[in-house]
Design a protein around this nucleic acid. Sequence first.
DNA 1: CCCTAACTATTAGGCTACCTAACTATGAGT
DNA 2: ACTCATAGTTAGGTAGCCTAATAGTTAGGG
Lengths: 149, 149
Amino acid sequence: MSDVELPPASLQNLAQDFREALRHSVYLVRRLDNEGELSAAQLSTLKMLLHDGVRVGEIARNLGVKVPSATEQIIKLEKADLVRRDPDPDDSRAVRVVLTAEGRAAVDSANERRNAVMAKILVALSDSERQALAAALPVIEKINSTVQN
Amino acid sequence: MSDVELPPASLQNLAQDFREALRHSVYLVRRLDNEGELSAAQLSTLKMLLHDGVRVGEIARNLGVKVPSATEQIIKLEKADLVRRDPDPDDSRAVRVVLTAEGRAAVDSANERRNAVMAKILVALSDSERQALAAALPVIEKINSTVQN
DNA sequence: CCCTAACTATTAGGCTACCTAACTATGAGT
DNA sequence: ACTCATAGTTAGGTAGCCTAATAGTTAGGG
């Protein structure tokens, strides 16, 4: 390989360290997940629906899963009366998934519970640590958005 | 609830935003996972073994899973000749899991592949973005370490 | 028009990785 | 030596993802 354009070692290190942090974060997410009445996948799905009337395909795309996986989650949520599947008035192939009142309440409650757990962790950090974290979040989201495919 | 000790709204927001970032990162991790010959769980398990002779219970604890889940992974890795299970000389209930030469090679190769993918993403960031990310990683790891339960 | 190609969603079947409960074997304390 | 705790495995179950196959709908070209 050429030595032009070769990313500096620091980039490799950053990649390594970031990957490691993400790996460990998986355990954190898992922990958070036990905290709730809703699974992570279910909560994520419900969150998509806060803007009413979303199609299955759009949900799948936003969640980074295939359409059948989204359908599966939606069916579970429907059985729990958290969502409803309405026909799309404009396209009868499509389905508009909407939150029920219970669904909306469930999102709020699950969100609060999980935020509380997370806040309890964050409160142990110093101001500068919280600042560093806050400053990095947009970057992380930018990175995440590159995966949107 | 009392209004003393109540965390400021910014803490709630940070918790919210961080959770959201983690949620999206799951998709990134999934993407990275398809990049490798080893699954994330397998690679994580192998990584534990870079310090030779680790017990099953310790692996489980480090991976944040229960012992049977660790056993399951180890058996798969053993079938693939990536690890070996040796009796513990000091405690014959215990098992010392050690990497084989192939296992060590597999870790290195999978790591490189994944780092390369990640580096390709990171190279698109600006210097200050990379700095912000780098500055936050220790904080994130600190947060992660609080979960070690 | 209508026929084909593209698209939306569901169903069917399969895999991985996790869990709990029950078991085996060994170790350690009294 | 008996009991209780500890290390690991086995058995059985669940969630969440996938691909392939299917049904129904739309849209565009002859």
